[in-house]
Amino acid sequence: MEIEAPEVGTIRTFPGRIEAARRAELSFRVSGNVADFLFSEGQEVDEGELVARLDPTDFQIVYNDRKATFDRARADYERGQKLVEKGTISRRDFDALLASFKSTEADLQAAQQNLAYTRLTAPFAGVIARRYIDRFEDVQAREPVLALNDTSRLEVKIDVPETLMRRVRRTDPADSTTLIYATFDSVSDRHFRLQFKEISTRADAKTQTFEVTLTMEPPEGLTILAGMTTSVVVDTRNMRPNESGEVIYAVPASAITGDKKLEPMIWIVDPKTMTVEPRRVEIGAMTGNDVGVTSGLEPGDRVVVAGAAYLAPGMPVRLLPVTEQPASNPR
């Protein structure tokens, strides 16, 4: 593998996907028949506002029945307290009254909670993005009925190749130079500043790209909804290689081995003699199957990435053709 200089001073454009910063699929915690939806798709709701409800008839009947049973058990328990003090009933009979009182009280609380579960409220302020069920349909407990999106802050997701992944860093809000921004075809002359949120540490198995999540304030005068697409521009012309100003080279983890002191080293190939010599390096974080080398490598160095554990200083090596697979124990 030949070490290449990190990509600097360029502008890259990536297709982006708009998502709501917070999103939830709302469901009832009990089964029942949908009596009403109070909002349509696209309407805004406030936190705690009622958005849908089930027919409460059956739940109300259960509640009334358990309330009557509880009232009777409570009355028996209160009479038993007076009787046990006088010795009219045994302690064992009183304990049975107490157990019945507590059991019916728990049943009443469960019925009251189930009755409350027939009302579905918004956990946060947002927009009804989708309705999965119509009125008068039967739904099962925890079956999604509504999708709620918080559009007060949007997320933009892009897939970044490995070579650029380490250069996507947090931007300074006070910096007037836009490093990462989004554009839309309908307003191509406007740039919308993005802020870094998080980055996946595992590459996609098929594309070998890393998902980067950015955040964007909802633009004024422009409707941006979850599911829309955008173009994300990453301008690296004013970026440092990393926060400390050092250059980081990504090499496969198989290229890193240890010397006698267990310090990290890499085998460097001399292109003239096609022999190898060890070189001490300093390493950083590991991302996917690669390790970041912060010191000890230069552009143009050719490193051994297969069979590094079996090499010795001055050992001749040969380059493998693209179609040839590396042996597990090279000699």
Rank of each mutant, 00 (worst) to 15 (best):
P241E: 09
A306Q: 07
E49M: 07
A203V: 03
E282Y: 06
A147Q: 11
N289Y: 12
P241V: 11
E85P: 02
A226T: 15
A5H: 08
R130T: 11
V168N: 07
L115I: 12
R135I: 07
F59P: 01
N64R: 15
M265F: 07
P313K: 02
L38E: 12
P299I: 02
F210Y: 13
L115P: 03
L154D: 11
A24M: 11
A96R: 11
P321I: 00
V212Q: 04
M1P: 05
M315W: 04
G227P: 03
K261Q: 14
L262G: 09
D150S: 12
Q195C: 00
F70W: 14
P241T: 08
I266F: 03
E19R: 13
I89M: 06
G258T: 15
P313A: 10
P264E: 10
N238T: 14
F196H: 01
D204N: 15
F136A: 11
V247M: 09
E298W: 06
P123G: 01
F70E: 14
E47C: 10
I61K: 15
A21L: 12
K260L: 09
T294H: 10
F14P: 02
T209K: 15
P330R: 05
P326T: 10
E2D: 12
V8C: 00
M274F: 07
S31R: 14
A250T: 12
D172P: 01
R169D: 04
E143M: 15
V303N: 06
E162Y: 00
R74D: 13
P271F: 02
A147I: 04
V234P: 02
Y63M: 15
P173M: 05
P15R: 14
E137V: 06
T294Q: 13
V233Q: 11
T294N: 09
F136L: 11
E298T: 13
P252Q: 10
T201Y: 06
F14S: 01
G80L: 05
K272S: 13
A141Y: 08
P218V: 11
D138N: 12
P144Q: 08
R23P: 00
S152C: 03
V84H: 03
T171H: 00
T257E: 03
M286V: 15
T213A: 08
